[in-house]
Design a protein around this nucleic acid. Structure first.
Lengths: 148, 148
DNA sequence: CGTACTCCTTCAAGTGACTTGAAGTTCAAG
DNA sequence: CTTGAACTTCAAGTCACTTGAAGGAGTACG
């Protein structure tokens, strides 16, 4: 066994994971990462375990999980006693949210598309005041403005 | 002409537009709405112009435009001199962003879906540690994990 | 006229998940 | 030994509000 475990600086860890250095410090501050041991000069030093943990965190964040969800997932990922179904449930809830958001964005896309197209056709180059976009904006919300 | 223009309280304006009262005060504070005239008792009072302006702002926000974009759109919506094409360009840029976000979310949806499905098939009910979700999370990001 | 009740007022702080900036220290290379 | 990048802490800024506390205004009823 090698006593010289390979250690890296916060900058190296940042490069390896794609998480910025202030964000790594922030994760330590809020307890997502354990307090890093320090070199003689007071700089943080990290090992392979930290790399694994931060990689996991980064993946979760990229999947859109919130910090508190990441906390739970970290616990679950280590536990031998707790049930995998918990993890699946968290992912399922998140998936439902993503689908909800997708539906909203798809509607939004159609509405914006309709604006741009109609502006080009109906009032291109005219004074701002007369733009068709503003006709729609000034009236109270109608949900069915463009076949959504 | 009626000298008694119909005025409403901040609460009535809130109900009419769907914007909460603290948010209306916030909009005044940041200059999206002009400072409202006050009653003898110091309460804000609003008229039909305010209703129109706030309705416009609400619509823009629902379309996902940021506050600074709403500022520009408000200017354009009043201007007789500036070109409608400016408005269309702002909407087009926003539409591009929405489409970008849609693409990301669609990928995310497929990845989450794959997790949930595989977890159900491969490790349902097992210890958290062994869940297939964590196999994916622990390794550095591979973009092509599920045909995305 | 009193009182109960809702709605209004201001101001400060909290939210999420960081980012940015200032001022100073440590480390590796030349 | 000097240069310069990378590190340190702490505070404040970001976005678009939301929440809470403490107190005043407006209105309906008896």
């Amino acid at each position: 066994m090698n006593l010289h475990v390979r250690m890296f600086t916060i900058g190296a860890l940042a490069k390896a994971t794609g998480v910025t250095t202030p964000t790594i410090r922030y994760y330590e501050e809020i307890g997502l990462l354990p307090p890093a041991p320090r070199t003689a000069g007071g700089q943080r030093s990290y090992d392979a375990d930290d790399l694994g943990r931060l990689t996991f965190i980064k993946q979760c964040r990229d999947f859109g999980f919130g910090i508190d969800q990441v906390r739970v997932l970290l616990d679950l990922s280590i536990s031998t006693e707790r049930d995998c179904a918990e993890t699946r449930d968290i992912a399922q809830v998140h998936l439902d949210e993503v689908r909800q958001r997708l539906a909203e964005l798809r509607l939004l896309e159609r509405r914006l598309e309709s604006f741009v197209t109609r502006c080009n056709v109906a009032c291109a180059g005219g004074p701002g005041q007369d733009c068709v976009i503003f006709k729609d904006m000034a009236a109270p919300a109608k949900t069915g403005c463009c076949g959504g």
